[in-house]
Amino acid sequence: MARALLRWASFTSLETSSRLPFVLLPRTLNTRAPSLSFSSSTAAAASNYLHLSDDQLMAQCDMDTFKASGPGGQHRNKRESAVRISHRPTGIVAQAVEERSQHKNRAMALTRLRTLLALKGYYCTHLIYEIHILVRKAIDLDGYIPPSELLQILPAKSTIRGKDVGPQIGPNNPKFALGMQALLDLIFAVEGSVSETAKLLGLSTGALSRLILSDDSLRVTVNELRTSKLTMRTQETRLLFFTGSMASSTLILSISNSVPSMPKLRLCWTMQFHTPHVGVTKLDHWCKLLP
């Protein structure tokens, strides 16, 4: 409980996006809990780890260097400059081996972590159960105004991009992840339509496609969104839940179906998630909210 409260405290101090509807992802489910509640008093607002500074984000991570056999140090010539960081709150792991110093591999792994966090969405945390779930932000398309993070990654020819936005930020910039996150929210909100997204961003469809193609992981995620049959028609149900594993999906479903106050869910999508550079393919499970 103490840990959960601590986490709640640290989340609310963050710059948070607007309050999102959320569902629960059990991590360490407290079975003695009387019932599951969705009241806002027990729910943390969706937190956006991308707003953390490098130091703050790193403080939430464990870092290691692939357990080397043997004593390391002066004994070895170059083996341990490869770096792996795991983000404790989400369990996301990012790594880098190709840079020439440990310091730079760490920075690269952190950038990758930001990318992975951005691709997955926003985290909602339940105060009592230490439960996390990922959601995409619901967007009101009428009078849509892109956030500045998104404007920054758009090419200069975008008609909605003001002169004051500054030069375009590319995939190698750590801030790219924030823009990518907002872009994915929008693409998700328009049910995967690239042309409609382009229109809202004052770009030609070709220009937006080039932007999407400029980053491999962005391209893969957009394609997943577009080819899936998951996009929903009404605002209330336009929500996907990333659950991390089959076990947690099953648990969420059983909770949602047994507790009357819970929104109804259905497991609807199992995605093969290939993490570039890490060479790991794993299955992510998504649930959708039923009206």
Binding site: G72, G73, R76, K78, R100, S101, Q102, H103
Partner: peptide, 21 residues
């Protein structure tokens, strides 16, 4: 390459190790 530095090394001097960063 060590931390964010590019250090000159040659025979006769220990190559700095990543741990030492």
């Amino acid at each position: 390459h060590w931390r964010d530095l590019v250090l000159v090394v040659k025979e006769g001097v220990l190559i700095p190790r990543p741990e030492t960063e």
